[in-house]
Amino acid sequence: MATDKSSLQLVANGILKENPIFKLALSMCPAVGISTTVINGLMLGTAVLFVQVFSSVTISLLKNFIHPRIRIPTYTLTIATWVTVIDLSLAAYFPAAYAKMGIFVKIIVAFAIITMRLEMFACKEPVKSSFWDGLGMGLGFMVGMVVIGFVRELLGSGAILGYDVLGFKPLLFFILPSAGFFVVGLMMGFFNWIETYYAERKKR
């Protein structure tokens, strides 16, 4: 029962229609915890992208050999293996960025979004569409993290990617760790408002 969507549609679905952060509201921990700068969001987004794509492809390849009763532990162990691979590679090649992200790389293993995609998509669909779906979800997560990081960095420290663009700091509060909740909440509300606004305009 292959999906009838094209690869491009699958990717777009992950970024817009089922965005893991703003629409599905899954994997919120990093979105609140370490999204203080664009570069942090980009790094963790890349890590999640890799884990999601590799796990989706692995499960999709092995789907005929996995007994349905033990599928959840199998998913967990598959994800854990790929997270270990990413964790060790990041620690070896990007030690500075890895130190900044702290424990968040390791806890990718418990991110609900990855398990959910394996359960909903990869265990039923062929390898090719699983790959594109994983890519879409990973990119969607990355885009969400970068957008939150952009807002927080711009308003909190007046900079983008570490370059000072505004010359002053509009709202220092946004760079504080606990402000992550406020930023995510306000942005979700803002996107909801845009959505209802356009839906109303379409009706008229």
Binding site: F182, V184, G185, M188, G189
Partner: peptide, 11 residues
């Protein structure tokens, strides 16, 4: 209305 549910919970 646009803040109902998750957004207000976050705040």
């Amino acid at each position: 209305p646009s803040f109902k549910g998750l957004p207000i919970a976050f705040i």
